[in-house]
Design a protein around this nucleic acid. Structure first.
Lengths: 357, 357
DNA sequence: ACTCTGAATGTAATCGATTGCATATTTTTC
DNA sequence: GAAAAATATGCAATCGATTACATTCAGAGT
């Protein structure tokens, strides 16, 4: 009991008066410059191995960590990367972004960098809260969706912050992109439905502002065209990636004279919404209608029926994006942030599509 | 075109050479001290209204914002609060935490504080990455789950960082808590099932380490006891809050001789898993078995059947927690961080429970 | 007119690390 | 063994704000 209390007190004292580089310098009987160099092995200056060992030992024993603010002030950076997340109800509340956060956290935990979430919505109010002109205290950005808004407002466009984009390619393609090739993924979806024998196909599309949505459609339609197939205008419905809107829009597919046998939803959420509505109307999936989704969310495998969908390796994409960003920050010249890096997507066949043959 | 380019260039120049307090001081022909005081109205020192107006105007026109690192260095804090999230698969990938992030972001965006995510798992490896001894560069913590691990490892216990806990009450109850009264919520669930006429009831419980799970059970059983009812040991199954484990465990409820008519799942995820398994076995909810969940996740309303559950106002809880933390940081003495603040939970009646009468 | 008071502003130290330059020490070379 | 080169360390300026203390100034009171 006594020991416990004593332990407590020591820890608290330590916390109250954290060691500075000066304290360690005094203990080691060297200058602060040497301490700094010993603890940052990447500087050009050298430190004698024995000195370094002594210093590292003292630092550990005394629980010394460099003062974050002092270092950032002197080095004129923040050692922080910003994660720009679109804060849209429905999308935000899917677990899509959790994979990204997990990846970013895992990647940064062993680096001197930390990350900062920047939740953004599309209406000016929230955007303008962030001080992008002054960099919002981040050294670089990981941007999840390249909103059209970004472009029109010239917010990030004019900002010379290192920047990696995942999901949507930036319209003028001048920035680093990591992700899947949505055009190819759209083709995979189309080929699969055709292989299952479907000919009359409907489409649930995402929001207009989403570049990646357009690419999914582009790939999808390119395959249909090759087979001389089209999608009737009344079978092409926009639901903005939202489960609710897809639920509400599902009726439209049934109103048309020629019934569709399959539906391509540009994300899983919309697939969920449509199937939910179909169920209510007595139309079961996949017996009466086949549905293929996109993303392979956590819920997809657990849905009823388990959803056939295009798997997007979100975790890997985010991890790769962070790697590229860190490499660039460490050495801007040798690791320029341009170009496109594709990771493979793949079809995950579950039970929401049936074969017509 | 020329204008556009020119605009670009100006912005870039601005970004490359951000203004310092000295620049503004020169422009305003006052000292840096006055600038600082004009822009931080909370100091005791006064600034003439005309001077302040002039300075604010110049600061705005020149896009000046105080250097974050310099301020933090001088003031010996980080203006950052840490959000400690348990990084458990299944729980993490529910959208439960997204509400919290939204609330925190909304609350902090108008404050000088930023937030930092600290994702933690239960195995030492990840925990030890964070430097809690030195405060991990945060001024305070918002803790989502008071893991038993925290206690046993004395990690946060001995740490004198301002700290607000939501969800689980800390075992020794010495820290500020904001959340719902899980005991009362458990009673609400029990009363509802009894009112529906159920007498043979099963329970899907969360993980052992979760204090809030114990409280839900405590409330639930207290009501049963009052009605001289018990839950048979074989109808009491632990599934650790995980959808998968609940799915796997669902069979156990059917093996027992006396069939249950209702099931209390200590969170929605487990309710989802159990119902999914029941469906496969041809047991439909709510006709054959009633299930009540807990949390009212985003998915709950969209599940098939829409889940009757206990609504927990996560967003409001997190927002309130942040408010308390900020108040404390602004004035530690007048706003001590102790005590319990309950927000009301409530029953959300959907379609997963049927009345036996 | 003179002192006194308090409001407004200025001066300069300070926070804790990094780093350019200078110096000391060791090693290499011929 | 001396000069040159390479290595190791120290000194002190610096980053950009905040703030204790000093000073100036304006107006009130007598």
């Amino acid at each position: 009991m006594v020991n416990l209390n004593k332990g407590c007190k020591q820890l608290q004292n330590m916390t109250q008066t954290p060691k500075t580089i000066k304290d360690i310098a005094d203990l080691a009987k060297v200058s602060t410059a040497t301490i700094s160099r010993a603890l940052n092995p990447d500087t050009k200056m050298m430190v004698a191995p024995r000195t370094r060992a002594k210093i590292e030992d003292l630092a550990r024993k005394n629980g010394y960590t460099p003062n974050w603010a002092a270092r950032n002030l002197r080095q004129k950076n923040s050692h922080t990367i910003g994660i720009v997340l679109p804060y849209l109800p429905g999308i935000f509340y899917s677990n899509y972004y959790n994979h990204i956060l997990a990846a970013v956290s895992d990647k940064l935990i062993h680096s001197p960098y930390q990350f900062k979430l920047l939740l953004l919505d599309q209406n000016k109010s929230k955007w303008d809260q962030y001080d992008f002109k002054n960099g919002e205290r981040v050294d670089g950005l990981l941007v999840i969706h390249w909103f059209k808004y970004f472009t029109s407002k010239k917010v990030l466009q004019n900002l010379n912050l290192p920047c990696v984009i995942i999901n949507d390619i930036e319209p003028n393609g001048e920035r680093q992109f990591v992700g899947v090739d949505h055009v190819v993924s759209g083709q995979i979806a189309a080929n699969y439905l055709l292989r299952c024998g479907h000919r009359r196909i409907g489409v649930l599309s995402g929001p207009e502002w989403s570049v990646d949505n357009q690419q999914r459609l582009e790939g999808f339609f390119s395959v249909l065209k090759k087979h001389n197939l089209t999608v009737a205008p009344e079978h092409m419905v926009r639901a903005d990636y939202l489960e609710e809107k897809a639920y509400a829009a599902a009726d439209q597919f049934l109103r048309a004279k020629l019934k569709i046998t399959a539906l391509f939803a540009c994300n899983d959420q919309m697939a969920f919404g449509a199937i939910r509505r179909f169920k209510e109307l007595g139309i079961t999936c996949p017996q009466d209608i086949s549905v293929i989704g996109y993303d392979d969310e956590f819920q997809a495998a657990r849905f009823d029926p388990p959803l056939t969908t295009i798997h997007v390796p979100v975790y890997d994409i985010a991890a790769e994006a962070v790697s590229l960003l860190l490499q660039h920050l460490a050495n801007p010249k040798s690791a320029p942030l341009t170009g496109i890096k594709y990771l493979p997507s793949r079809l995950v066949e579950r039970q929401s599509c049936r074969s017509m043959t």
